[in-house]
Amino acid sequence: MGNLDMLSLTAYALQVLLIIMAISIVVHKNNGTIIILITTFSLITASLYVINKAPDVAIAEVAIGSAIIPLIYVISISRQREFIVLDKAMDDFIIADNAFTGVGYVLLKRFTDFYHLELNICNDVRLCSLGAGRDQLLCEQTNVDLIVTKDDERNVYILKGKASSVLTYKLEAMARDYDNIEVVKFKDRDFGD
C-alpha cells in the first residue's frame, strides 16, 4: 500500500463505480432509465480520461458522449411510441370531442393505451385527397401506420395497415367484436431488385 496517493485512489474508486454502472445498464429493463445511466457512464469515463493524462480525449468524450448521444437516444425512443393514423373517412367515426366520441376513436384509444403507444390522428387535406390506389405506397414511404377509409356501399369502415407489422394483427384481434369495422393488411412487395 506504499504508493497509493489521492490520485490513484480516486482512479480505483471511479473504475469500480464504472463497473457498477455497466452492470446496472445491462440489468435494467426500462430504456428511459438507461439513457440517464449512459450519460453518467460517459461522465465517469471522461473523468477517468483526465486522470489518465488525456484531456483532449476527455473534451471530445464530454461533448459527444454526454450531450449528443443521449439526445439522439431520447429522440429515437420517443419516435418509437407513436402510432400515426390517417383519417380519410372524413366523418364522425373518429372525433375527440367532449360531447361524443366516435366508435373508431374509442377502439383506437383502447388499442394504443393497452400497448403503451401514443395516438396521433392526422387529417391533412393533401394526403387525404390521394386516390385509394396510393394507399400502400403511403404506408411504405411515410411513417403512416394505419389508414382509415369508408366503404359507402357496404357501410363498413376499412382500416388498412401493413402485414409485416405485429400491431396490425393485434388491432385485428381487438376489432373482431365490431362488425362494421374491417382490417385489411398490405402484403410486402419487395423483390430485392
Binding site: L18, A22, I25, N31, F41, E61, G65, I77
Partner: peptide, 19 residues
C-alpha cells in the same frame, strides 16, 4: 436499443483500456 447501449459500453471500455 439495449444492444446499441451495450455497444456503446464496449466502445468506451476499449478507449479507456488504450488510454
Amino acid at each position: 436499443i439495449k444492444s446499441v447501449f451495450c455497444v456503446t459500453i464496449i466502445e468506451s471500455g476499449v478507449i479507456l483500456l488504450f488510454l
